[in-house]
Amino acid sequence: MKELMFFDACCRVGDGVERPYPGISGLLADMDHFGVDRALVQHNSAGFLGAENANRILVQMLEKEDPEKRLECVWNLLPSQCGELPEPEAFFSSMKENGVHALTLDPFSHRYIPCRLTLGKYLDEAVKRKVPVFLNCFAGKWDDLYAFLREFPDLYCVVHGGDKWGRDRHLRPLLEAYAGVHVEFSGYWVPEGIADLAKLYGAKRLLYASGFPRYNQGASMLQLKHSGLDAQDIALIAGKNLETMLEESLC
């Protein structure tokens, strides 16, 4: 969009195990159609591919199919004890080399407990380096998310905003308690709820996200555009917040 820069914080690409999904070209076509400038992408099948494969495949997909570099990928973590990923220092160096500035995890598919014992080495380093960690794996698992954040209270992270039916009773305590918690609002359909959260916790804590390919990118764009917030806050949420987070990552 000419008047606003949109940076979609939650997209998935790549075929799933159960059925094919739109790939990079499908996402880019939708971005053109709706006027989304950039997007952060995870792999639809990271749960089945495994973290290392998903990380590698995502980088390859973007190198091959996104010459204008409108997309950035998110890498998946695993417990440090099994040696499946490089040690933290090497891992974060590799992220930097590959232009990756954000992390996620899939503990329920990859079958480990998301806690300090398993992920502490990586996530302590992520805190130091201000790498945002996307916690959409906890969608609907609020008990687990609360327990996880108790172990990593300083994490710079992005929480999934919900499943259409508003989750303010879950979200607001996290925004109040943890300064590093941000909310991406794919699936956050609460009437004027974006404005309420921005007024309570600051527009810098909120990120535009579509949830592509499940959701189209347009619905939440119009929701944000007419959220009732002023133009400056809308611009932050539409894209500037995520852009800043990724620029500051790994510094």
Binding site: K164, P191, Q217, G218, A219, S220, L222, S227
Partner: peptide, 17 residues
């Protein structure tokens, strides 16, 4: 379903189709 869902989100979904 108001007050569940935002009118702009819903109309946005229709015009985005």
């Amino acid at each position: 379903d108001l007050p569940w869902f935002d009118e702009y989100q819903a109309v946005g979904g229709v015009v985005s189709a």
